[in-house]
């Protein structure tokens, strides 16, 4: 996007703010018309049906960390080593994603405290290319864990991803073992690793760091799974069970410890950190 386009867009969005379309939205789950400001004040949870909307990294940091946290820099990684293009060049897709997102890739870390308990918090943002895991996500995950080890504190990851970043081919797949090296090092340091699964968390992300937490938390209604529902349906050719791959379903099948409403998430994390945080050596 050119400089001029950016200015034009910002002007048009300012103008639109006053139109009814911009003040109201429809709940993605129950269809209720919601006043956007009220919806956001309610942590992007529908007041009528409790549907948990997707929120970005900045909103997560504000929600879960005490004021005064520091956003950590996103590590640089090789840009497009595959020279990938599908219907568009991969660098163009990256550029477009960066133009509409506050951080340079899908995973951003912040260092701060949860009700006073220090922690590094990583947040995956679904708005950035579907939260997909490429080298930048893998490298940021490793950097977040290293920061936690350096600060002798927990690493908390809030996951959201459609899966691996296909534009990085095999290099995205290799982030599965790479991130697992990091979770092993955190464990070796005796530090807590807590995973908060949000809507949606699927594919290679679920099949690596998103399922390796000491404690697994899921947000209500979040879609969590390995294989996509359409792929499964094509394979088995029968109707999927009710609530299949939703947070509550995973809880019932023993895959997560708890399903926690967004408003209770910070206090829950703080309680867990209170129990699990490394005891100071005298």
């Amino acid at each position: 996007m050119s400089w001029l386009d950016k200015v034009r867009n910002s002007i048009s969005s300012l103008a639109k703010r006053d139109t009814p379309d911009e003040l109201w939205m429809k709940c993605a789950s129950c269809g209720e018309m919601l006043f956007i400001k009220e919806f956001e004040a309610n942590l992007s949870v529908c007041p009528k049906c409790e549907h948990h909307g997707r929120i970005g990294a900045k909103a997560r940091f504000d929600l879960l960390l005490d004021t005064g946290y520091t956003v950590l820099p996103t590590p640089k990684v090789p840009e497009n080593p595959l020279n990938f293009r599908d219907t568009k060049k991969y660098p163009d897709r990256l550029k477009a994603a960066r133009a509409t997102n506050p951080y340079p890739d899908a995973l951003t870390n912040a260092y701060g405290a949860v009700n006073g308990a220090k922690a590094v918090l990583g947040v995956q943002d679904f708005k950035f290319m579907g939260g997909s895991m490429g080298m930048a996500v893998g490298e940021a995950f490793v950097a977040g864990v290293e920061k936690a080890i350096a600060e002798n504190c927990a690493y908390v990851i809030v996951t959201a991803a459609g899966g691996a970043r296909m534009q990085e081919g095999i290099l995205s797949l290799m982030q599965m073992p790479k991130t697992t090296v990091a979770t092993r090092r955190l464990a070796a340091a005796g530090l807590p690793y807590i995973v908060v699964l949000t809507d949606p968390t699927t594919g290679g992300v679920t099949a690596s760091y998103a399922m390796l937490g000491d404690v697994q938390i899921a947000e209500p209604g979040a879609l969590i799974g390995f294989a996509g529902q359409r792929v499964i349906q094509d394979t088995i050719r029968e109707k999927l069970p009710d609530g299949f791959q939703r947070a509550e379903y995973l809880h019932a099948h023993g895959m997560v410890d708890m399903v926690v409403h967004r408003k209770d998430l910070k206090d829950t994390l703080a309680t867990l950190l209170g129990y699990l945080a490394r005891k100071e050596v005298a």
Binding site: M176, P177, T180, V181, T183, R184, T206, A207, S208, Y209, A210, M211, L212, I224, G225, F226, A227, G228, V231, I232, T235, I236, L240, P241, F244, Q245, H253, G254, M255
Partner: peptide, 26 residues
């Protein structure tokens, strides 16, 4: 690829793959 099916998801396909990768690394 790993089997994409209802029972595989129910029994924790993701966790099994993640733990198996972890077991290799250990």
């Amino acid at each position: 690829g790993a089997f994409p099916g209802v029972e595989a998801e129910e029994r924790g396909q993701s966790e099994a793959i993640a733990r198996s990768t972890e077991a290799c690394l250990a």
